[in-house]
Write a protein that binds this DNA or RNA. Structure first.
Length: 193
DNA sequence: ATCCCGATAAGA
DNA sequence: CTTATCGGGATT
């Protein structure tokens, strides 16, 4: 029994899911091996009411399509040459998601180090673009169900304390800029900032 | 704190 | 074709 989180796990309100994911283990298997990390920072994006979300106002495009489906699937997209990974949440036709902003390396340290090049360990996975590179998550993981190989989330540990604050990198999003929809494990050393 | 890099999707 | 972007890295 591998304790991979089942599809039902993702059937909770997006803000709850963003918190529940903290401490869970994000795993990616590739030909080069398996790499994983404990999720330590997340952000919620609640499309219908959130100007910072790609799916704001239920905007339906090729890119946002997966968010209109069932929760528990992967939403990847590329920005500024970096791939970012989200967990689709919300019921059918509710385009919401949780962005994974940072993880703490767990399995496959050698592989992570190789992928991240000549960096210090604390910089391996402390950002949304860094962790995808470290774990080998790529754009074509878009649409993958998170309860099966090669990309899945396992039960991890229960964080002692969770902090909450404004999201990062969305200064151009009007009032949504100030919504406190970012969550992180208090004092974890792999937080993005 | 500031600049630069530059892939892609989306809108004009 | 033009523009904006849920970053990262290097540099001041």
């Amino acid at each position: 029994m591998m304790s991979i989180l089942s599809a039902e796990f993702y059937e909770q309100p997006t803000l709850e899911l963003a918190k529940s994911l903290l401490g869970c283990e994000l795993v990616k298997e590739t030909e080069k091996g398996t790499a994983s990390g404990y999720i330590v920072e997340t952000e919620a994006y609640i499309g219908p009411v959130d100007r910072a979300a790609h799916s704001f106002n239920n905007k339906r495009t090729q890119r946002t399509e997966v968010m209109f489906g069932l929760p528990g699937y992967v939403y990847t997209y590329v920005m500024h040459t970096h791939c970012l990974v989200n967990v689709v949440s919300g019921e059918l036709n509710h385009p919401e998601a949780v962005l994974i902003r940072a993880v703490e390396p767990k399995e496959g340290l050698d592989l992570i180090q190789e992928r991240r090049g000549d960096k210090k360990e604390k910089d391996f996975t402390n950002g949304p673009g860094k962790l995808t590179k470290a774990l080998g998550i790529i754009k074509s993981d878009y649409g993958h169900p998170l309860d099966q190989s090669p990309l899945y989330i396992k039960k991890g540990f229960s964080p002692e304390h969770i902090s909450q604050g404004k999201r990062i990198g969305i200064d151009n999003s009007g009032e949504a800029r100030d919504y406190p929809w970012r969550f992180w494990i208090t004092e974890n050393r792999f937080i993005s900032r």
